[in-house]
Design a protein around this nucleic acid. Structure first.
Length: 279
DNA sequence: AAAGTAACCTGCCCGC
DNA sequence: TGCGGGCAGGTTACTT
C-alpha cells in the first residue's frame, strides 16, 4: 500500500497528534511484527517513554523517544497507523481483528497499528545503534540534495530496466508501484528501457516527474484506490486517486492519445503503460 | 551481475 | 452458491 506520499501523510499526522505524549500502556497482539526485539523487551523499553519527534525515511516512519531509542515502522502492503481519541467511533471499513499493536497514551488517546496482510515490520533501535534496513536506503527523492546530477548518476550507468531501478530502494527511497507507473508515464518512458539507454533529456523529464508527482501526491494526502486500503492517521482516504493516469487502469485508455493501455509484468508487479506515448 | 520465482499473509473479485 | 485462481500500494531470499 503505502509509498512515500502515504507514509509522509501519516508522519505529518503523527507530528500533529503524538509529539510529547507518553506511552502509558502497550499491547502486542502479533509479536511476529517485532523484528529486532521480543515482545517483553519491547514492553519494557517503550512503556513510559515520551515521543519527542517523528521522522520519515523512504517508506519508514521513525518515532524518537525520550529514552534515545527509536521506534521504527514499515507498513508493508497493508499497514495502517490509526489515532483515536477516547470514545471516537471506529472506522467501519477497517476490521478490528487486524489491530495488532495498541499504544495507549497518558491522555487517554491511542494509536493502533492495523495490518491485514501482516507484511509490516516494527523495530526498536536502541540508542545510536544502526538499522541496516535504513542504512542501505538511497536518495530521499524530495530532499534538496537529490539534484538532477545525483539522479543521473544513480540511473545512467545501470543496465537494469528503469522501472526496477526506480523501485529499488537502494537507489531512491520511497517510490513503489503506483508512483513508478505514473512517473514513467509522465516522462513518456517505457518501463523496460534500460537505465543506461536513457538520454539526458529523458532523465530530466523523469527527474521532474518524480519530484512533481510525489509532491502533488503529498499535498493531496496520498492515494486511496477504490478498495480503500490506505487511510491516514484519522482513518480518512487520500485524494490523489483521481489524478492517477495509468496505474490500475485495466481496460483503460491513454489520457494523451486515447489508445488502449497495456499491462505487462515487471518483477511480478503489474505495470501499466501507453505503448504509443512511452518509448 | 542480473533476472526470475517463491515466500511471507489475508481478502476480494472474477469466471466457471 | 461455491470453489479456485489470480491479484493487491513491499521486501527478501533463493534460484537460474
Amino acid at each position: 500500500m503505502p509509498e512515500l506520499p502515504e507514509v509522509e501523510t501519516i508522519k505529518r499526522g503523527l507530528e500533529k497528534e503524538i509529539i510529547n505524549k507518553v506511552i502509558a500502556a502497550l499491547q502486542v497482539n502479533l509479536p511476529r511484527l517485532l523484528k529486532n526485539i521480543t515482545a517483553n523487551q519491547f514492553q519494557e523499553l517503550v512503556t513510559g517513554k515520551m515521543i519527542k519527534a517523528v521522522q520519515r525515511r523512504g517508506k519508514y516512519i521513525l518515532c524518537l523517544l525520550d529514552s534515545s531509542d527509536t521506534l521504527v515502522f514499515h507498513l508493508g502492503m497493508s499497514g495502517l497507523l490509526l489515532y483515536q481519541k477516547k470514545e471516537e467511533t471506529v472506522i467501519p471499513k477497517i476490521k478490528q481483528k487486524h489491530n495488532h499493536l495498541f499504544f495507549a497514551f497518558e491522555d487517554g488517546t491511542k494509536m493502533i497499528y492495523n495490518d491485514v496482510r501482516q507484511f509490516g515490520k516494527i523495530w526498536l533501535i536502541r540508542g545510536d545503534e544502526k538499522l541496516p534496513e535504513l542504512e542501505s536506503l538511497g536518495w530521499e527523492p524530495l530532499g534538496e540534495d537529490f539534484t538532477f546530477a545525483k539522479f543521473k548518476e544513480v540511473i545512467q550507468n545501470k543496465k537494469g530496466n528503469i522501472k526496477s531501478l526506480l523501485m529499488n530502494q537502494k537507489n531512491i527511497a520511497g517510490i513503489g508501484n503506483i508512483y513508478a507507473n505514473e512517473t514513467l508515464f509522465y516522462a513518456g518512458i517505457h518501463p523496460l528501457r534500460k537505465g543506461d539507454s536513457l538520454s539526458t533529456q529523458e532523465l530530466k523529464k523523469l527527474y521532474f516527474a518524480i519530484k512533481d508527482t510525489l509532491h502533488k501526491a503529498i499535498i493531496l494526502g496520498g492515494t486511496t484506490m477504490a478498495d480503500e486500503s490506505y487511510r491516514n492517521l484519522w482513518g480518512n482516504p487520500g485524494n490523489f486517486a483521481p489524478e492517477i493516469l495509468v496505474y490500475g487502469k485495466k481496460n483503460g485508455y491513454c489520457p494523451n492519445c486515447g489508445c488502449p493501455l497495456s499491462i505487462i509484468r515487471i518483477e511480478n508487479r503489474s505495470t501499466f503503460l501507453c505503448p504509443d506515448c512511452q518509448r
